[in-house]
Design a protein around this nucleic acid. Structure first.
Lengths: 156, 156
DNA sequence: CTCATAAACGATACAATGTATCACTTTGTA
DNA sequence: TACAAAGTGATACATTGTATCGTTTATGAG
């Protein structure tokens, strides 16, 4: 039984997105235009492995308007290409969605994000779902931990 | 295998709070003063079964300042007596924590909150935790569904 | 290629949800 | 009862977005 973590529900869609890595192409296939701003934002997000906030992206891309950054992020969320990951402090990060279903871990000290995947959890959740009144449309799950680096770090 | 749902991690504390229902007494035991405002807010929260937003509370209690409502909610969160429950739309509700560990369901149509508890999930999560690099300090999990009422309702 | 049109954009105002500040009030206790 | 610490209210501010609207750009028809 092993692990890597992921936030399942960008927009409560349980289906994983197609295994293409060219987000822009996917957007175009969905009828969205390929603009300089979208290319810039998507390019940057793809390079950021470890999660980011919207403001962070806006700051690092002064050539793209703040509103457009938010619009693009919203678009990618809706298209299921981004996950919105709640942090312990009430804030949250965005992180690229992977094709395979998984969940996320967040270090409560340094905020580092990890992923895990565990078929047992999924199976149990499905079983629970079949017992619940109503129709399950998704789930969300995060593990909070103190990562190895923080455990080893001297400072409290 | 049955169910009822709950947000585990108010402040990432895995321990359930003591099975007393007198929140005010608990606060006092922790050294907090019993003020008119806290009594009013806590009293109201205890009566609200189905979750609430901070603004909702502030509006219904015009005699208590807005800042104090937020302060009290923050206090109760820190003390582990409230859960902060993320909603599909990015907003969230607060809901009283129960003594027993459980998770929450949220209807993505009407926002109704349910609870479930399932020992298998907890066991699996513990097992995953022991495999992860780092020290697990808590987890969070929500199921999103369309509740029976919404399924039966005529409107789409 | 060029133009019309819908889509997207930027600037900016606004909204929602909280937090910080600080002078004032209340609580608990010596 | 009086005092210090804790708590409060009013208000300003912070963060994270969304709405508006006039301008620019991508795209596809001709």
């Amino acid at each position: 039984m092993f692990s890597s973590y992921r936030l399942l529900i960008p927009n409560f869609n349980t289906a994983p997105r197609p295994p293409s890595s060219d987000l822009l192409a996917i957007l175009e296939d969905q009828g969205y235009r390929s603009t300089y701003q979208r290319r810039t934002v998507v390019g940057m997000l793809e390079r950021k492995g470890d999660g980011f906030t919207a403001e962070e992206v806006a700051e690092e891309l002064p050539k793209v308007g703040r509103a457009t950054v938010y619009r693009t992020i919203k678009l990618l969320l809706k298209a299921g290409m981004l996950c919105k990951l709640p942090l312990p402090n009430g804030a949250h990060k965005y992180i690229m969605a992977r094709a395979e279903h998984h969940h996320h871990t967040v270090c409560v000290r340094c905020g580092a994000v990890g992923e895990f995947r565990n078929s047992t959890v999924e199976r149990v959740l499905r079983a629970i779902g079949s017992d619940m009144p109503g129709e399950i449309v998704g789930h969300r799950m995060e593990l909070y931990l103190i990562c190895r680096d923080c455990l080893n770090a001297p400072a409290e």
